[in-house]
């Protein structure tokens, strides 16, 4: 009798081990759902991206040198986040926070350049209401930019948590989640600079 009740409960306890790693899988599934949001925005851009309504075209609006600079900022922030994770693995708090700050600065540079581009577009009378092309462009690029902005907010929050609690188990989990989020946004940006900017200026 006691054996019969013991066995299922022991299995139950074994299952309780899982939520420890469950966060990372759950966060990965959130990223996949985010990926679907971007897929829909990419599909919208693919359908509407050449409907200029007599307005400016991508070839007239996009400054590829600025986009190249922007891309390098995001790429550099990816590798510096990697360095932060490596230092965190070695349990070196100061170096981890240092690389995180560098990552945040690269992210902020990316957002600043993007905002500069957006202001420039608005001055050219190329706001989101100008044409179907510009609506889909602004939806896609600004959604990505918003994600990066929230990533920076998360990063600053994490810096305070690290300063207060150090490299605890919980903070390592948070660091890993933000790492996935940050690298995922870089992956989305590959799609944006290829599909929107580079292909947008092709005749």
């Amino acid at each position: 009798m006691s054996d019969a009740t013991l066995n299922p409960s022991s299995r139950y306890f074994v299952r309780e081990h899982h939520p420890e790693n469950g966060t990372l899988l759950g966060f990965w599934i959130y990223l996949m759902s985010d990926c679907l949001i971007f897929a829909v925005l990419f599909a919208t851009y693919a359908v509407l991206g050449r409907n200029y309504a007599g307005g400016p075209t991508g070839a007239e609006l996009f400054d590829l040198k600025l986009v190249a600079l922007n891309t390098s900022m995001l790429l550099l922030s990816s590798i510096t986040y990697g360095f932060a994770m490596l230092e965190a693995g070695r349990k070196r708090l100061g170096a981890t926070m240092g690389w995180l700050i560098v990552t945040g600065l690269f992210g902020a540079a990316f957002i600043s350049l993007e905002l500069y581009e957006f202001v420039h577009l608005l001055h050219e009378n190329a706001g989101p209401q100008r044409s179907a092309f510009l609506t889909s462009f602004w939806s896609l690029v600004a959604t990505h930019g918003l994600h990066v902005s929230f990533g920076i907010v998360w990063l600053v929050t994490l810096l305070f948590q690290l300063k207060k609690h150090g490299l605890t188990h919980e903070n390592m989990r948070r660091l890993t989640c933000l790492s996935m989020f940050w690298h995922f946004l870089d992956v989305v940006w590959i799609g944006v600079f290829t599909f929107v900017y580079l292909m947008g200026v092709l005749p």
Binding site: M32, V40, T44, A46
Partner: peptide
């Protein structure tokens, strides 16, 4: 699973 959905959404829409 997500990639399959992405391919369907993108190729289907286009």
């Amino acid at each position: 699973f997500t990639l399959i959905l992405v391919v369907i959404v993108l190729s289907g829409s286009i």
